[in-house]
Computed example of a mutant assay.
Amino acid sequence: MAFRFLHTADWQIGKPFANIAGDSGAELRSQRIKTVESIAQIANERAVDAILVAGDAFDSNEVSDRTIVRTIEALAPFSGSWIFLPGNHDAALAHSVWTRMHAMGLPSNIVIADKPEPIDRWNGRATVLPAPLRRRRESLDQTEWFDQAPSSDGSCRIGLAHGSVANRLPGNADSSNEIPEDRAERAGLCYLALGDWHGALKIAPRTWYSGAPEPDRHKANDAGSIFIVDIDRPRAPERVETLNVGRYYWIRIDIELIDGTCERALQALEGLSNEYRTCVVFLNLTGAISLAERRRLELELKKWEARVHHLEIDDSGLIDEPTPDDLDALDNTGFVRLAVERLRLRASDPGDPESSAARMALRMMYLDHFAKGA
Rank of each mutant, 00 (worst) to 15 (best):
E27T: 14
F58S: 05
A47H: 13
E73I: 12
I42V: 15
V53G: 02
G22N: 12
I33M: 09
S24Q: 13
E45D: 15
I51W: 00
D59C: 02
N61A: 04
L75D: 01
A43V: 00
P77D: 10
A26K: 13
T67G: 00
K34M: 12
S24W: 05
S38T: 13
K34A: 14
T35G: 09
G55C: 10
N61V: 07
E37I: 07
D49H: 10
A57G: 04
A21S: 15
S64A: 11
A40S: 13
I72F: 10
S24F: 01
I42P: 00
I72E: 06
R70P: 01
I33A: 04
L28W: 02
Q41T: 15
R29I: 06
S38A: 15
N61I: 02
A21G: 15
I72T: 09
E27F: 02
D49E: 14
V36E: 00
E37L: 05
I72N: 06
S24P: 09
V69E: 14
A50L: 08
D23F: 02
A76D: 06
E62K: 12
D56L: 10
R70S: 12
L28T: 08
I39H: 03
A47N: 15
S38H: 11
G25V: 07
G25D: 12
A40N: 06
S38K: 15
E73H: 11
S81I: 08
I42Q: 01
S30H: 11
A43G: 10
D56F: 03
E27R: 15
A54M: 11
A43R: 04
V53T: 07
R66N: 12
L28C: 07
I68S: 03
V48G: 00
E37A: 12
T71W: 08
Q41P: 06
F78Y: 09
N44E: 14
F58P: 05
R32T: 09
D49Y: 06
I39S: 03
G80H: 02
V63H: 01
D56A: 08
E62W: 09
